[in-house]
């Protein structure tokens, strides 16, 4: 929590125009005496704060969706992106970009693409009211590969002036973010929903049959997980484009830090995702300032070494 707050402050302080820490606190308190301060206030309240919040919400949603997916598939490889969701979203968004539509329609296209892709994957692997996790994972990977080919195709036939926007979208881009009020509320609701679900998730993680024998109504639980994870992923994707990696890695990192108990793991994943993505986005804005990098690039650059370090540390003890 504390770390989360500090990262947020850091994000507000840093940028092309450096603003001292004290000033940031003053401005957040609502005091803007002179015109220069007014300008700074605009930068903070209308540019940096919405973007920082969007990064946190996106990271939180993706990490939680990943934690849910890993339970549903009972497979540590599961993640909304591995399952072809980002691909579907990308197709929707790229088509909208190619047609030169506005950014809200690009978001809409991504949302639609993500949901359609998830329904396709889950529909194909849902047999006799049961999900077979291996088939689900394979179907997802194959569908994702198909989307990948389509993405290359779209990029190849697109006019040059739209290519840069498309590439940024594909790598995850927070630069068009408004204050994500609805999305933040969704994140909060999903964290709250996860609390009464968590003990059942713990049992389901040990196997559906065992969970059923211990009194868990398995099918309703599977549908609940699926619906929640889908909504969270689709929301995150329309907010920030295709930011991979967080959904896969944050639940793993958190499992090493707080253990496998979902009562703690899911809120911790939301927090961890928020911190990592916010940190990555702040770096993306500031490393080559005033040039901005795609957020997804920095996410992986931060996340890969962190994950490898934790993986090795865990093995030695």
């Amino acid at each position: 929590m504390l770390l989360c707050g500090l990262t947020l402050l850091h994000a507000l302080v840093s940028g092309s125009v450096p603003i001292p820490f004290a000033t940031v606190l003053q401005l957040l308190g609502g005091q803007a005496a002179d015109p220069a301060a007014g300008q700074l206030q605009t930068i903070i309240l209308q540019l940096r704060l919405p973007r920082a919040l969007a990064a946190m919400v996106t990271g939180g949603l993706l990490a939680m969706a990943g934690a849910y997916m890993q339970v549903l598939l009972r497979n540590p490889l599961a993640d909304p992106y591995v399952l072809g969701v980002s691909g579907g979203a990308a197709i929707g968004a790229l088509l909208a970009l190619m047609l030169g539509l506005g950014s809200s329609l690009v978001s809409g296209g991504a949302l639609f693409g993500a949901l359609a892709s998830m329904l396709l994957v889950f529909g194909l692997s849902h047999r006799h009211n049961n999900w077979y996790s291996e088939q689900l994972l394979l179907t997802g990977i194959v569908v994702a590969t198909g989307w990948g080919a389509l993405i290359s195709f779209i990029l190849a036939i697109s006019p040059d002036q739209q290519l840069r926007g498309m590439l940024f979208w594909l790598m995850g881009d927070m630069s068009h973010s408004d204050t994500p009020t609805l999305e933040a509320m969704l994140l909060l609701v999903c964290v709250i929903i996860s609390l009464p679900l968590a003990t059942r998730l713990n049992l389901y993680a040990q196997g559906p049959m065992r969970a059923a024998s211990l009194g868990v109504a398995v099918q309703p639980l599977q549908w609940t997980i699926f619906v929640i994870a889908s909504i969270m992923t689709a929301t995150a994707v329309q907010l920030a484009g295709a930011i991979g990696f967080i959904g896969l890695v944050i639940p793993h990192i958190m499992r090493r830090v707080v253990g496998a108990d979902h009562r703690i793991l899911i809120p911790a994943s939301a927090l961890g995702g928020a911190i990592l993505l916010l940190l990555a986005d702040t770096l993306a804005r500031t490393v080559f300032t005033p040039m901005q990098l795609p957020t997804g690039v920095l996410t992986a650059m931060l996340g890969v070494p962190l994950f490898l370090y934790l993986l090795n540390k865990g093995r030695r003890t």
């Binding site: 009972r74 040990q206 196997g207 065992r210 024998s213 253990g259 496998a260 108990d261």
Partner: peptide, 11 residues
Amino acid sequence: LFQHQESGFPI
């Protein structure tokens, strides 16, 4: 008591 136990995440 099942004959075989499915394995899950480490606990």
